[in-house]
Design a protein around this nucleic acid. Structure first.
Length: 576
RNA sequence: GUCCCGGUAGCUCAGUGGAUUAGAGCGCUUCCCUGCGGAGGAAGAGGUCGCAGGUUCGAGUCCUGCCCGGGACGCCA
């Protein structure tokens, strides 16, 4: 990665400076490379001189001058085609400028990398799992689940781009009370459709969608389940109801581009004895105790966890947390993921400490489990919050929002904010604003490039793929400010991916996409790409446009958003 | 009561301890189509970064307290 290359050069300078005693032989602080806000401050800068000065001051009580330290580092900067200038500025910053020739050459590198541009090998084949959404399999997913889905899915994309092997998993809560109520409701609706007066359970699911599911059962099985005892019918309905609801969940999520590698059934934890096995494991390690007729996990043994947690109720039933223990036992001790990211809504925040304690009780590094929390989505209607409940059948579904706003705009919108922000969602506003969504600006730029490259091809300026070998010599002609600014912006991609991975919040990529589009549009305004009178320059600009197309397509791809070849306004009024 | 997360432009939100000017989108104002897609470009107005202390060479960013908003504190899931 570019930033790392720059960092290494500075580190080499530091070592060289120490070798000839221009710099004191102390242990040097880590060199941090930043991107200055102001372009006059170069492409990269480092505060290493000031940090070093502070370290020396602390160690020796002398008063070193940061600018002198900076000078020593600058004097020892190795010659490298990457860097054209290293300047000292302000209190002791070292500002580094990328060489123009090197920048120009990168256009070829981007085009050559194509779909792979931006990929970094940080993950080095580590196996990570991202478990997300995991909504109860009892009906359509609430709009809040869309946030979870988009966050998890995009994060998984980004991790893959960073070289991690990622499994996307949906935990199907088919072992607990809610799923039982769902099946009982399904049975009731089924019986009602066949004319029997069967009440929906008290806490059952009131939504109309249950009638659709019941109707499908009727079509598949006729009245078969009425001709057996209720308990037997409920048992047989479980797999059928599960299949129905999973198909609709899968469709709903696919509607916004979210797909899974694995749907993990909670029930299998019971069926395969994993609850018992994982609890035995904890028992052997002395982490469980029997008290008041129940079995407790001694979470209070671990820092920050004051309370113990019940895993087996006094009635012998395991708690939901017992399922979590077994599930994560399976993730780490059977499937051996290097790292697991669970994407949870903030209302589960109280469970995080016990998950951390659980990891330690397993004898595992708690950092291998990351609970990624996102805040709620509140529904606003007529300026007021609307309370929703799936059980009451009163929810805004993902599908509704996708239909009204569009999957691309929805994903982009959800990814313009950090996970911790609370989202107030107003459907009317969203529909009104959908057309103004910046995602179209990005997509439009991409379509515009595609169309223009097409025209270029016809004019005899072929994009690189159609050459056996790219003509690098023309790239040196890309020397206008807006051309170089665009190249610089394109080269940020690896760092943007690294940032998204580091902070486990990929929303910076949406801003990056807008930046790239903006840089391209400025370039496009300033520079005429197809100009028969200047064939070499035209060819160079075609390459640059192509590189931009590569970056936009890749960035949109990571965000799970389509990169259209063309798009036309369909709502333009034709004047006169 | 304890703990967690927010509070940045009219609105929706970004912002890795840095550099006399804190950013984007939308909205608002003014310009730019005889040149490849105007869903565009150039510029402008708009801010006590909730409040008060502290740490430091340097704070929107870290620490403490307070105010406001949201959430969590079950043998529920």
């Amino acid at each position: 990665m570019l930033r790392n290359q720059v960092q290494e050069l500075v580190e080499q300078a530091v070592i060289a400076g120490q070798a000839d005693a221009s710099l004191p032989a102390i242990e040097m602080p880590q060199v941090e490379i930043a991107r200055p806000k102001q372009p006059e401050h170069g492409d990269y800068s480092t505060n290493i001189a000031m940090v070093t000065a502070a370290a020396i001051r602390k160690a020796t009580e002398s008063k070193p001058n940061p600018r002198q330290i900076a000078q020593a580092i600058v004097d020892h900067m190795p010659d490298d085609p990457l860097i054209s200038a290293a300047e000292i500025a302000g209190p002791g910053f070292i500002n580094l400028r990328l060489a123009e020739e090197w920048l120009q050459e990168q256009v070829a590198a981007i085009v050559a990398a194509g779909d792979e541009f931006g990929t970094i090998d940080q993950g080095a084949g580590q196996r990570w799992q991202v478990e997300h959404v995991s909504a109860n399999p009892t009906g359509p997913i609430h709009y809040g689940g869309a946030r979870n889905a988009v966050l998890g899915d995009t994060l998984a994309n980004v991790l893959e781009a960073a070289g991690y092997e990622v499994q996307r998993e949906f935990y199907v809560n088919d072992g607990g009370t809610q799923f039982r109520l769902f099946i009982e409701t399904l049975y009731a609706r089924y019986a009602q459709l066949l004319g029997r007066d069967e009440p929906i359970p008290a806490d059952g699911y009131q939504g109309d969608y249950m009638l659709d599911y019941a109707q499908q059962i009727v079509e598949e099985a006729g009245d078969r389940f009425l001709r057996m005892p209720r308990d037997a019918a409920l048992t047989e309905l479980r797999p059928l109801g599960r299949a129905l609801v999973l198909v609709s969940l899968e469709e709903e999520l696919a509607g916004m581009g979210v797909r899974y590698d694995n749907w993990f059934s909670e029930q299998t934890l019971y069926d395969e004895g994993l609850i018992e096995q994982s609890l035995n494991y904890l028992q052997e390690r002395g982490e469980l105790v029997k008290r008041d007729g129940a079995v407790w996990f001694l979470a209070s043994n671990y820092p920050k966890h004051e309370k113990d947690v019940v895993v087996i109720r006094s009635n012998g039933q395991p708690t939901y947390f017992a399922g979590d223990i077994a599930y994560h036992y399976d993730k780490f001790l059977r499937r051996h993921f290097d790292k697991v990211i669970d994407v949870w809504a903030v209302d589960h925040q109280g469970h995080v400490p016990r998950m951390n304690a659980m990891m330690q009780a397993f004898g595992l590094d708690p950092d291998r489990l990351v609970i990624l929390m996102y805040d709620l989505v509140k529904l606003i209607e007529d300026g007021k919050e609307k309370k929703l409940s799936k059980r009451a059948g009163n929810i805004i579904t993902i599908q509704e929002v996708v239909e009204q706003v569009g999957a691309d705009a929805l994903r982009f919108n959800l990814l313009t904010r950090g996970p911790e922000s609370t989202i107030e969602f107003d459907m009317d506003l969203a529909v009104r604003e959908a057309k103004e969504n910046p995602v179209f600006y990005v997509q439009y730029s991409h379509a515009r490039i595609c169309s223009m490259l097409d025209k270029a091809r016809k004019a005899g300026f072929a994009p690189a793929a159609e050459f056996d070998e790219m003509d690098h010599s023309v790239l040196a002609l890309l020397s206008q400010p807006s051309e170089l600014a665009l190249i610089r912006k394109l080269l940020e991609m690896e760092e943007q991916i690294a940032t998204a991975v580091e902070k486990l919040s990929p929303h910076n990529l949406t801003y990056y996409a807008m930046d790239v589009a903006k840089a391209f549009n400025s370039f496009y305004r300033d520079a005429r790409v197809i100009d028969p009178d200047a064939p070499a320059l035209s060819q160079a600009r075609v390459y640059l446009s192509q590189a931009t197309q590569v970056v936009l397509a890749r960035t949109l791809g990571l965000l799970g958003i389509t990169a259209p070849q063309e798009m036309w306004r369909d709502d333009v009024e034709i004047d006169e």
